[in-house]
Write a protein that binds this DNA or RNA. Sequence first.
DNA 1: GCCTTTTATGATCTATAAAGCATATTGACG
DNA 2: CGTCAATATGCTTTATAGATCATAAAAGGC
Lengths: 83, 83
Amino acid sequence: MNQIARTTKDIGNLLRNARKAKGLTQGELASRAGVWQRTISNIETSTSGAKLETVFDLLAALDLEIHIVPRSKMTPGDLEDIF
Amino acid sequence: MNQIARTTKDIGNLLRNARKAKGLTQGELASRAGVWQRTISNIETSTSGAKLETVFDLLAALDLEIHIVPRSKMTPGDLEDIF
DNA sequence: GCCTTTTATGATCTATAAAGCATATTGACG
DNA sequence: CGTCAATATGCTTTATAGATCATAAAAGGC
């Protein structure tokens, strides 16, 4: 399950899924990442555009990293994540 | 050559490499992505933390996308990008 | 259905990125 | 070395994210 992100909305959804997969609440992740619960809520719901730095803080706390790759064609499996 | 980014600095370096690989100037990329040359310079040199949205604009203009994956152990090849 | 936990959100303040103008500085090339 | 293109940067304004207090709303368990 390779997670593709092309928009801030993708990142929001993806971070929420990753957080839940690890069984963390927004509050727990917030304290781990050194950000505010409010900020995580905003990012996950795409209420506000996030700063790159903040996203990296969250990814680190979730033990994730970003790979930059040439744009791939949409694979069937990816559609599940959208709809 | 899978590009790993864990910090804003990584993103800056990576965007610069990708831009040059496509033979684009900052000005050209700026007009394609709808941002300012100034902004690209700032991001590539990590002069200022970028907004996630801006990074996505640049990635789209470079035909790149982000994959979120579990943190990998550092591979030997990656060290070249650091030192 | 109630209670607890979790998430969303109102309001204000501060910090800072991007817009917008510019020019200075650097780098590549003949 | 001189020239031109490319990149870096000074400054001011505007937009907006994050900090910080709070509480409201929603979700989940019993």
